[in-house]
Design a protein around this nucleic acid. Structure first.
Length: 126
DNA sequence: CTTCTGACGAAAT
DNA sequence: CATTTCGCCAGAA
């Protein structure tokens, strides 16, 4: 493996669970991975290794928008191809496309430091 | 070691 | 709404 950082592994493992047609915010990932912060999640996405099936495009910011950067247009197209709809202002409807979190079976199979999903959900956007 | 820079977020203004 | 401010912390330089 090229460069792999322990703190990013849990993030990638979780992001990999987001199904097509659904999205999560950096803050949601932050709430679920011990030791991660929104910035770290963004940093991890920027360093996402290719060819490992990690759906980095399904992580957007809390405003429901794709963060500005060079590959934003490409990311948007990938999501639209999955069925995600963006409003005129470039925002998604959280209540429609928000990821509901990893299944319990997966949580048990991965005895990592994941925080309770339902508790964290209270402050999430949407 | 110190500084700076972010695919961020929440609260204040 | 838009902007600013501050907290966050992993890497690069």
């Amino acid at each position: 493996m090229a460069k792999s950082y322990k703190s990013f592994d849990a993030i990638y493992a979780l992001v990999r669970e987001i199904p097509p047609g659904q999205v999560a915010s950096y803050g949601m990932i932050e709430s679920l991975v011990q030791g991660a912060t929104a910035r770290i999640v963004g940093y991890a996405m920027a360093a996402t290794p290719v060819g490992q099936g990690i759906p980095w495009q399904r992580v957007i910011n809390s405003q429901g928008k794709i963060s500005e950067r060079e590959g934003a247009a490409r990311q948007r197209k990938m999501l639209e191809d999955e069925g995600i709809v963006f409003s005129k202002t470039g925002k998604v409807n959280w209540t429609d496309v928000r990821w509901q979190g990893p299944g319990e079976a997966w949580l048990e199979a991965n005895n990592i430091e994941f925080i309770d999903f339902l508790d964290a959900q209270i402050k999430w956007p949407g």
